[in-house]
Amino acid sequence: MTTRAQQIPAPHARVELLSRQTSIAPGSDLQLGVHFVLDSGWHIYWINPGDSGQPPVFRWRLPEGFSLGEIQWPHPERMQSNPQLADYGYHGEVLLPVVLHVPPGLNNRLLAEIGVNAKWLVCREVCIPEHAQLQLALPLAKTKQDPASARLFAATDRLLPQPLPRRWNASATSAKDELRLVIKADKRITKAMFFPLDPGQIDNPAPQKLQPSVTGLKIILKKSDILLKAISVLHGVLVIPGGPAYRIDAPVRQSIQ
């Protein structure tokens, strides 16, 4: 039995459904993931695709009683094709993990058949909508890790946004054309990039102005043209090169002009 289902060759990508464990234990959680290996120069999109594109969509078929969590999105890269447009997504390869909740009572069943109908947009200069049916059959027994896919899941863990360290915090102020994100940390942060989770809040291609300080970092973000209403929380991911990615939920204060 394999945790590596058949790889589906699609134009500009190979796609497969993987499990971190080689088998399923009743009443436990395990991690599945859809793995994309993209042709050189081609990309797919993050949950917020930025100025164009579309994130992958998965429609799952699960045995009765099983359920799934949300996709755990690794942090993206910014892809800027020209000064007016910036997208958020992935080149090379990416694993999009989800947690599978296995029900406790699994009488008389030997295999759990899991299927997913995956739809995604793959782009270089042009974009192509693609889809594939992926399958995986897992034996029901005590769980063990599959060394090959476990390595890939472990590498992906390091790309998943984490909560800010306990002594850090994030807040923001809204000025006329700017959102100013302040990261209070226990050290100076000189390099970082903010990725907005909600579309239409910041101007994606505008340069992010960084103002490092001894207590962290301030990032000046240009507001999007289509942001007409005040926002109360700025959600996103902060990526510090060489370090982890952090989940940001910064309350936004309206500044007095």
Partner: peptide, 15 residues
């Protein structure tokens, strides 16, 4: 709803 996020392909500008 006077401003929404447009969706689609990127406009294929010269640069």
């Amino acid at each position: 709803e006077a401003a929404t996020r447009p969706y689609g392909c990127s406009v294929k500008y010269k640069d």
